[in-house]
Design a protein around this nucleic acid. Structure first.
Length: 504
RNA sequence: GAUUUCGUAGCUCAGCUGGUAGAGCAAUUCACUCUUAAUGAAUGGGUCGAGAGUUCGAUCCUCUCCGAAAUCACCA
């Protein structure tokens, strides 16, 4: 396999050889002990106390600025950047000037990872800096890093090409601090949610990714094959039915951050694999779930932003609980003027025609209502809002509404015009559940390729008795987009799905 | 899957009606013991996404392909 090398790569490989000739291992095996980081020094250094006089720090060279017998460089560690003062007097005090004159001036490059021992001081221009007494090369970089310069908050020559940023996320993370911030926030968001659930007595579980029957949602699955058993398996589209089996089994509050896979389009808000938090709580209903969810969201916003007001594009989203609750029929009435509550299928088709909404024969009453809501209402709910009480046809796993005929006890949480969460008072009546699955089979025969499969083992579980339960699924990636003010899902996935690169 | 736009040096970008390419940063060499988008001087670096066609001649025009972005469709 041959590799085309650029001029700069050839030069760096040549430097590698020169280093080896000087007896310097460019990739030394032994550990380098680090006793502080850039942020600690910048925050805690005190010039009168003269603390940090024996620092040992490691990082990647981000700029190097030789000035004859003195060189200034910046290294970046996990917490930020700090300046180094490298002088011939400090690094090569004896006869042998190799370390400074050869290594520092000629063999070190932007991108190299080095370890430094030295003392902290303040330069004439007032910058907290480490005066290096020892320098050790820890890893030589053979490819040039994009050089991004910043002056007075303005960024020059930023590394912005989305294709390169996503394919080479490692470069993106090194060079773009705001990208690091986004992922630190994402992780903190997930931690906050996990802690909140654990604090309320929930149990985190793992359920199968490879499933015989792709259940719990309406979506096209990825299909794979198990060789030893010679059977097809599906990558999960949801974990709902497994978590409910655990509720049957007597775990009363279970949750899982589930990586789901759906074989559908990719765009700004869809990646083929994505993360959904699902949790199920026994002896609760969807009213309880709304209360719990808004409290959790409020806590998460506070943890990430210190306030419940979260900026998103040119808007500010308020995560202050409680959130508004609007019945789906009321929402449709408000934004279209049509009262669809008691309409039959033909009347609904007429409404769709008037509203210029495309329909097809596979659509039943529920689906039509959903289409109207999706086309005319959804985008209007910017502030967190629970849309409640969906048509039964749309919700085969949801318990029928306690008072309203034809509806189910379900809510979706809309934020910034997008669905973020979907929750039910779960259907635990096995007879009704079997009937609902059979309805789905009819829809499938009618041409609805998203209708749900019958899962007989799940029905068997329900027949053993599932306590009244409420459950929810929360789109973690979309929530991360909201909490980090990103318009694209790729910005909150470390390695978003891309078409494969052409092999060389 | 459809439509539109885009792909030029390591990075960010110029490049007129078709005459085989430029800048800044990065790199190389030299000078400089407190610089900070360091500075000054010099130098090198390109299969213009890939392939085919039109043409005396293609980065530029046409077609096909590869990759990306935006919008739409499907979905969360």
């Amino acid at each position: 396999m041959s590799q085309h090398l650029s001029e700069q790569e050839i030069i760096r490989r040549d430097k590698l050889t020169q280093l080896e000739e000087l007896g310097i291992d460019p990739y030394p095996p032994e550990m380098f002990e680090v006793n502080c980081n850039s942020l600690q020094i910048l925050k805690e250094y005190n010039d009168t106390e003269k603390n940090f006089q024996h620092v040992s720090i490691a990082g990647r060279i981000m700029s190097i600025n030789p000035k004859g017998k003195v060189t200034f460089a910046k290294i970046q560690d996990e917490k930020g950047k700090i300046q180094l003062y490298l002088s011939i007097d400090n690094l090569s005090p004896g006869e042998d000037k190799t370390l400074y004159e050869k290594v520092v001036l000629h063999l070190l490059d932007i991108g190299d990872i080095i370890g430094i021992k030295g003392e902290v001081f303040i330069t004439r221009t007032g910058e907290i800096t480490i005066r290096a007494k020892e320098l050790k090369l820890l890893s030589k970089a053979l490819r040039p890093l994009p050089v991004v310069k910043v002056k007075d908050g303005e960024t020059f020559d930023a590394f912005t090409d989305p294709e390169q940023r996503f394919r080479q996320r490692y470069v993106d993370l090194v060079v773009n601090p705001q990208v690091r911030e986004t992922f630190i926030k994402r992780t903190l968001m997930i931690k906050t949610i996990r802690d909140f659930l654990n604090d309320h007595g929930a149990m985190e579980v793992d359920t199968p990714v490879l499933q015989n029957i792709p259940g719990g949602a309406a979506a096209r699955p990825f299909i794979t094959h198990h060789n030893a058993l010679d059977v097809p398996f599906y990558l999960r589209i949801a974990n709902e039915l497994y978590l409910k089996r655990l509720i049957v089994g007597g775990f009363d509050f279970v949750f899982e951050f589930s990586r789901n896979f759906r074989n559908e389009g990719m765009d700004r808000t869809h990646n083929p694999e994505f993360t959904v938090l699902e949790f199920y709580v026994a002896y609760k209903d969807y009213f309880w779930m709304m209360d719990f969810t808004e409290k959790m969201m409020e806590k998460m916003a506070l943890a990430l932003h210190g306030t419940t007001d979260v900026p998103m594009g040119d808007k500010v989203l308020s995560f202050k609980a409680p959130f508004k609750r609007v019945a789906i029929h009321d929402a449709i009435k408000e934004y279209t003027g049509f009262d669809v509550e008691s309409m039959n299928e033909t009347e609904l088709l007429g409404v769709c025609k008037q509203l210029h909404i495309e329909t097809d024969n596979s659509m039943g009453k529920g689906k039509l209502i959903d289409e109207i809501f999706g086309a005319k209402c959804e985008g209007n709910f910017i502030q967190p809002t629970f849309i409640i009480d969906y048509p039964v046809e749309l919700s085969p796993l949801t318990k029928k509404h306690r008072t309203k005929a034809g509806l189910v006890e379900r809510f979706e949480l809309m934020i910034n015009g997008k669905e973020i969460a979907n929750a039910y008072t779960e259907l635990n009546d096995p007879i009704d559940q079997r009937a609902r699955f059979e309805e789905q089979t009819k829809l499938m025969e009618r041409g609805d390729d998203e209708a749900m499969f019958i899962d007989n083992d799940f029905l068997r579980a329900l027949e053993h008795g599932m306590p009244p339960t409420s459950g929810i699924g929360i789109g973690i990636d979309r929530l991360a987009m909201l909490m980090t003010n990103q318009a694209s899902i790729q910005e909150v996935l470390l390695f978003p799905q891309m078409k494969p690169e052409k092999s060389e």
